[in-house]
Amino acid sequence: MLDDVLGWGGTLPRNRVLLVKDTVAASASFLLLYLLKKILATPDSLVIFVGLKEPFSHYSRIARKQGCNLAMHQDHGSLVYIDLLSKTILEHSSLPTDAAVINEGNKLILLFQKFIRILKEQPGRNTWIIIDDISLIEVIAQGNNAHVRDFLHYCRTLATDQQICSLLLLTHLDAYEDIDETMMANHLELLSDTVINVVPLVTGQAVDVHGQVIVEHKVPCNVNPNTCMDGFQNSRGYGLHYKLMENTVQFFTPGKHV
């Protein structure tokens, strides 16, 4: 059902920026894995996963429970995991350190270089760069939002007519409530083509509903209109409720859960 609302029913969208915003009360890590599974299931797809929050074993374990073997995808070359939790960004790069110095100390150029190298090795594939999450990228940039902004801009330039490249970014909705931080939040909003907000129920906790996802499209896309008519709407977009099961996640329109 979420696929219909996202417009992922038939094929994956190309050259899109997808922003997932979560809150403390409703974490979106399940959604990230759900989308990762979807992408990996599509033939000729390539995922570059930048992990900053959890170790690979964590993602791998949860994905396996849900019927997806990340290690196998890694062996087949359809998943490239960039571990920035245990390794520093410099360990991933062959660039002389002075190059980073030239660019006003923006270390994220090294990560961008890594992306370029992977794309050159496997050209023409439907590539998705997944970053978990942006607030930790800010930590690498030592709190310099301008550096993160530049890095994200360069990630966007990776999509050309020869190369399909989409971005899936996770960020925290409530981390940008500070006035100084709103510019960064606005920038992420303007950058993205689709925004998914993962928020708790307004009425509080429930046994059958663990939260709601609200999908906001900013560019035209092939959304199944019938599904959207069933879902609820607010000023931001189309919403669905979800329930997290042991091995899967269920999305449903409000009040339709059996």
Binding site: V5, G7, H217, P220, C221, N222, V223, P225, C228, M229, Q233, N234, S235, G237, Y238
Partner: peptide, 13 residues
Amino acid sequence: VRQTDKSLQMVAN
């Protein structure tokens, strides 16, 4: 946002 029309193919737009 609330003015949706079933006849439109792209409601999300």
